[in-house]
Design a protein around this nucleic acid. Structure first.
Length: 510
DNA sequence: AATCTGAACAACCGCAAAGAC
DNA sequence: TGTCTTTGCGGTTGTTCAGAT
């Protein structure tokens, strides 16, 4: 041991190129502890220590092993790099899907997520997610694939977690209850408070956050189900807000986070993906997740093989800059375009200065979809002429949308584990949870729709329009405003009915 | 070839919960 | 019961590397 100590001392001093030494935080008074990257020798010492003494008692590691590291650092090193059965390398497709799924359910509970991913560490998952999130937000893409959202929704709806994921973890429930519902109470309060100024919103008398959110929509992640930004977000913001058309909007009354005036509001909004990466505080992000389901990409989206992945860093493989969920197909942009073109433009609704904290993705989803559905119903027959009557301003919006279309086309990545088609056409995702049949029925419905789509190009054909719309309606926030939406949905296929029925039942049954 | 940029990864820090005393 | 210590977690920062310009 003394020999080892000497070796360590040597290594510590010779290898400490960072020169970053300082006292430990309270432990080992006066002992200069090394910081910075670990050396192989240090690793060996730590491994040796753990083999002899087991894990734990990290603060005494330096006493027994000679390591000049604080206990924290030792524990971290062991947990993240040295302990056996650690899986190294890029995340597999299945793991990536799992992470998205877990994050949709748990939020930033990295340790819990890691518990579901054998061999992976919380730090690894956290890094992966943060990197991915940053990239997707920059690209203006949603964080979650729709199928993940649906699955989470379904699981919460049925009041049971999967054995694998929710596994009766009280902590998780506490987390949801403590952190998420409160936020969404705010959202709901604002919705209710402002429903009078929103002509398309039905009354929300019996819908409270607490009655609805237990199904999972209360999770912060669901606030991210929309892209929090768009390349040309100003246009989208205008479009989104155009049909709101209330001066109250500009008085910042409408937005659910307004009551959070302190410094935490930024953090909250940020963590919920409510900010634009381009412009913190510009409302936008109205493209609904459901758009993605209209893609005709019928790739089975087999998980990328490890062999392939190992050659490239995760996230650099199948996905393009715009689509780590890859197969998430492009939105029905013709319809979206129509909506934007035909959206009324109250003068004061275009105040792009109404910035943060106006980026309630959830809210935008409601608003945008309301408008989308309402307008598209009326305009579905004369799409071709729409662009010709667009105003110059509208053209700008068209441009923005075209940009977005391009992104969504990039979304159609057959290699992604999260592609809609992969989820829809393959059982594993569905069958991994306890609600396999309920969910499978839903997924099958989508799948049937999807199978009729022959290519991305055909998404915009009249034939696929209903499909697009029906899938569009799948977006979760729709259920927030069920009654009137049923009418809008009435001439769509049974998918909507099924989902809306479920959602309605869900809400009324709470 | 040099520089810039973003992704990936490693590590640190502060805080809080849990456990020991 | 209160205090101290240990452990774990999540956020953040720093470093390295590869690709783009």
């Amino acid at each position: 041991m003394s020999q080892m100590t000497n070796e360590v001392d040597n290594n510590v001093h010779y290898d400490d190129q960072t020169g970053s030494q300082l006292n430990d935080d309270g432990n080992g008074v006066g002992v200069v502890l090394k910081k910075g990257p670990w050396t192989a020798a240090e690793d060996a010492l730590l491994v040796n220590y753990v083999q002899k003494h087991g894990e734990g008692n990290w603060n005494v590691v330096q006493n027994y092993s000679g390591l000049s590291r604080c206990g924290k650092s030792c524990r971290l090193r062991w947990a993240n790099h040295l302990r056996p059965n650690l899986k190294k390398g890029a995340f597999t497709a299945e793991e990536e899907r799992m992470i998205a799924e877990l994050h949709a359910k748990m939020g930033n509970k990295w340790a819990r997520m890691a518990a579901h991913l054998p061999g992976r560490t919380d730090n690894e998952i956290k890094n992966y997610w943060n990197t991915r999130m940053k990239r997707r937000r920059r690209a203006g893409l949603p964080l979650y694939p729709p199928e993940v959202l649906l699955q989470a929704f379904q699981e919460r709806k049925h009041g049971q977690g999967t054995g694998e994921i929710s596994d009766g973890d009280g902590g998780h429930r506490d987390f949801l209850k403590k952190n998420n519902y409160e936020i969404h109470d705010a959202i709901f309060d604002s919705l209710k408070e402002n429903q009078g100024i929103l002509p398309f919103l039905p009354d929300l008398p019996a819908i409270s956050a607490n009655s609805f959110l237990p199904n999972g929509l209360g999770s912060p992640p669901y606030c991210n189900l929309l892209p929090s930004t768009l390349p040309n977000h100003d246009h989208l913001q205008e479009s989104t807000m155009s049909f709101i058309g209330s001066s109250e909007l500009n008085s910042n009354r409408f937005y659910p986070f307004d009551h959070i005036k302190d410094n935490t509001s930024d953090k909250i909004s940020e963590s919920f993906g409510l900010y634009s990466p381009l412009d913190r505080g510009v409302s936008h992000g109205s493209i609904c997740y459901s758009h993605s389901l209209s893609n005709g990409n019928s790739s089975t989206s087999k998980p990328t093989s490890e062999a392939v992945k190992s050659e490239l860093p995760s996230l650099q493989i199948p996905e393009t800059e715009f689509g780590s969920w890859g197969t998430s197909p492009p939105p029905p942009l013709n319809e979206s375009l129509d909506v934007f073109i035909h959206s009324p433009q109250p003068p004061n609704a275009l105040d792009s200065g109404s910035s943060s904290p106006l980026n309630s993705g959830l809210l935008d989803a409601l608003l945008y979809q309301a408008n989308t559905l309402g307008c598209s119903k009326n305009n579905s027959s004369d799409k071709s002429s729409n662009s010709s009557i667009a105003t110059p301003g509208d053209r700008a919006e068209c441009s923005a949308l075209n940009m977005y279309e391009t992104e969504w086309e990039d979304y159609a990545d057959p290699l992604s584990p999260f592609g809609a088609t992969s989820i829809l056409n393959e059982h594993p995702v569905v069958s991994t949870n306890g609600n396999s049949w309920d969910e499978w029925e839903l997924f099958q419905t989508f799948s049937d729709n999807n199978e009729r789509l022959q290519s991305i190009d055909q998404v915009w054909t009249p034939k696929s329009e209903n499909q697009s719309m029906s899938l569009l309606n799948f977006t979760l926030p729709d259920v927030l405003i069920t009654s009137d939406w049923h009418e809008l949905y009435s001439d769509h296929d049974s998918t909507n009915q099924a989902i809306m029925t479920e959602a309605s039942d869900d809400i009324s049954g709470q």
